[in-house]
Design a protein around this nucleic acid. Sequence first.
RNA 1: CGGGGUGUAGCGUAGUCCGGUUAUCGCGCCUGCUUUGGGAGCAGGAGGUCGGGAGUUCGAAUCUCUCCACCCCGACCA
Length: 487
Amino acid sequence: MSKKLPNIDSEISNWYTDVVTKAGLADYGPVKGTMVIKPYGFQLWENVKDVFDGMIKKTGHVNAYFPLLIPKSFLAKEAEHVDGFAKECAVVTHTRLKSENDEIVVDPDSRLEEEVIIRPTSETVIWSMYKKWIQSYRDLPILINQWANVVRWEMRTRLFLRTTEFLWQEGHTAHKTKEEAQKETLDILDLYKRLAEEYLAIPVYTGLKTDAEKFAGADKTYCIEAMMLDKRALQAGTSHNLGQNFAKAFDVKFQTEDNNEEYVWATSWGISTRLIGAVILAHGDKNGLRIPPKIAPIQTVLIPIFRNTEQRELVEKYITSIEIELKQLGIRYFIDWSDSSPGFKFNEWELKGVPVRMEIGPRDVESNKLVIARRDNSEKLSISRDEIRDSLKTILDEIQNNLFNQAKVFRNENTHNVENYNDFKEIIKQGGFVKCGWDGSQKTELKIKEETKATIRCIPFDEKPEGLTCVYSGELAKHEVIYAKAY
RNA sequence: CGGGGUGUAGCGUAGUCCGGUUAUCGCGCCUGCUUUGGGAGCAGGAGGUCGGGAGUUCGAAUCUCUCCACCCCGACCA
């Protein structure tokens, strides 16, 4: 393992891949674009998953599982949907291999009559089933979520941020009114915001996607948008109001209380393993990861220090008593008894982003103390053994808050209100978010994208378009929008 | 799919232009001893189809042809 990471300011792209692999989060899979999520990375994902799973269960949602394989014809039922996903679908055409001249080849006799696609998302299978399950208003709402993998054959991939196969949750709900579906869409978006801000410590802008940026098949797409360390935007979660589009495509109607027939109203929403990439790129520093305590696989790592066997025994005994206390406190901890030197371990666990490190050696045993080092601000302090009970949780909370605040200050400092196109281009060139007026035309949106590579990340809920003019056309602004270059 | 680049041990690399002993070095790995409060030291050791194939040659990591893989830039995207 090399001792230095690439410079995070000048080559963040290399820094990112290096951190991901060296910290043991993930590795490249054998097929291009695929990723192996290693135990440390998977625990991080599981923690995120558990938090969100708890949130949706509290709000009445249930988990289920739908098949990976979908009839090709299903995708085509919703016109926009097929347009959006056709270009990146993996297709299963055969069901058998055979040996031929010592080679394994596809058996041409096993060609499928109806080809099958690997889900890029599950709206179509799920709505084909909802057709069977929904007859009356009494069957509604359906609030189903699934944790699953999906495959989108992307041209350019990056670990966690964009992989051919990724893990996510996709919620698919069915409602009897437009209003109820809209409320669900926004309620979930709010959960996403809470997950991002309170747990991942990443501040997000929330708002509506433009028609050009919305999900293929949705009436409206809402999103949470985060700023990464290179001042680019990352879409961290989306919630869609699907209107009656999928109900119409799959002919899903229900009988209302007054015995009329109506199409069902739908939502879908998702967050993915991309969130891991967001955590890395929102909090990392020159020494590696900085993982927020609430989702950290290891919240505290203990580094024993000793010179000989007698000291080792003393330290071990002392650590055992601390360990009991950490268990009682419900802290996720790890004691690193490996053979490496303490200095090596300090750097190693900093790379892995563990929020708190405890250094415990003969001096500490002697004085009934221990050294605590914080990953967020590199502070080291010596506390007494008895202080662990009261202060460790406080310190972890402080780190959680500090990471959020640092990210928020950074984002706010790099979000600029802009009134003319020259300033706009300058900010986009330097990096950062731009808040400005937009005349609401897709033509303007496209022109700006062509000329600057920046896209409208969202129309924020708290927009104030009054009195603004469009930064490109100079016409009266229809919306205030956030522009940025995105991942 | 277009433009550019790179393939030598688990990782990173020298050697390639100008063919010639046993393919270089660092990290990592194994064994032993000494070490351990910010990336330990010494000694010994294991590990190679030089991306694959074909050709030129007395002789190829090095020259020629061909195939393959991966990376970067562009078009698509959570």
